[in-house]
């Protein structure tokens, strides 16, 4: 009987080499994602080091923005982000629930879905012009925190709808049929099964929009953010909804390009604060997800 050796043929050896090479390339690409992030953060922090302190956070810009801290813009950014999400998150989540759980597949829902996808891809400067036209001029709100927040809300809404829909769609269909077959209405099904099993995905989608809303300059520049604004006091409620406000992203732009003789560390310090907000919210979203997942035993 002829015996078998199971040794490598040259072809197999070649395949193995290709395999190893492919793996290396993919690994390097993955690594190259981290390197810029680490380098950016390191660079910013090193450049900003002399100025970083709690006071930098809590002091207002002073001496025509050549000294002081970032309190007014920081507070402005918080206002803009919170108000815009208070608008877009509930609308977005409810709309997504409708689209995923109630809507039947007809031309109307197809148009809505198409609109969502396309709106999510519209550049932010276009949202800015829309906000200027719709809220500032047409609705007569004027340039204000409210108008800017609404513009940001319009910008984040389609993405929240899309991410929420995805989270809802990931809940297995048999969970729903199980509920329907014990006579649950659609809403009971959503409340008892669909939302509890998708809430962490929904929240992650929303929180990712925090960093987007905090980082964008264009939509707020036309609609409510200003270069400089003196706050009336130090409290958390120093801005009024119809006031204009400063914002970190805009402030960074101003002090890096519009104001001469700014101390070197100041823009870098501002950038670090902005980065910190983004990283902090992303970190929070991860922690929250882990927490929800650990609790989902109910």
């Amino acid at each position: 009987m002829e015996s078998i050796t199971f040794t490598e043929t040259p072809f197999v050896r070649k395949k193995k080499r290709t395999e190893a090479l492919a793996k290396l390339i993919f690994f390097l690409m993955a690594l190259s994602m981290i390197i810029p992030l680490v380098m950016i953060i390191a660079y910013l922090v090193v450049q900003a080091w002399p100025i970083l302190s709690i006071d930098f956070l809590l002091e207002n810009p002073a001496n025509r923005m050549r000294a002081g801290g970032v309190w007014a813009p920081l507070l402005g950014t918080i206002y803009l982000v919170v108000i815009s999400l208070l608008v877009s998150a509930p609308i977005g989540v409810l709309a997504a629930v409708y689209l995923n759980e109630y809507a039947t597949d007809n031309w109307f829902t197809r148009i809505i879905n198409l609109a969502v996808v396309n709106l999510a891809g519209v550049p932010s400067i276009v949202h800015a012009l829309f906000g200027l036209g719709a809220f500032v001029l047409f609705a007569g709100i004027g340039r204000s925190i409210l108008a800017a927040s609404l513009t940001l809300a319009i910008m984040t809404l389609p993405v929240i709808i899309a991410s929420t829909k995805e989270a809802l769609a990931s809940v297995p269909m048999p969970f729903r049929t199980a509920c329907w077959n014990v006579g649950a209405t659609r809403w009971q099904t959503i409340r008892t099964i669909v939302l509890p099993n998708s809430i962490s995905g929904i929240l992650t989608g929303i929180i990712l929009q925090v960093s987007r809303a905090a980082g964008e300059t264009a939509p707020i520049m036309f609609t409510g953010a200003v270069f400089f604004k003196a706050l009336k006091d130090d409290g958390l409620f120093a801005y009024n909804l119809l006031d204009q406000c400063m914002a970190l992203s805009m402030h960074l732009f101003t002090i890096s390009t519009q104001v001469p003789d700014v101390p070197h560390a100041l823009p870098y310090g501002t950038a670090v604060v902005l980065m910190a907000i983004v990283l902090l919210t992303n970190g929070l979203s991860i922690a929250f997800r882990v927490y929800l997942r650990s609790r989902k035993r109910w």
């Binding site: 969970f175 049929t177 014990v182 006579g183 009971q188 008892t192």
Partner: peptide, 29 residues
């Protein structure tokens, strides 16, 4: 109607909650 006419599927589809909660779900609804 669905209360009176129950259905069981090819793949068991218990909900990802406790045994107890699965059974009382219908009554709670």
């Amino acid at each position: 109607l669905r209360k009176s006419v129950g259905m069981v599927f090819q793949r068991p589809n218990p909900l990802p909650i406790s045994v107890y909660e699965n059974i009382v779900l219908g009554m709670k609804l």
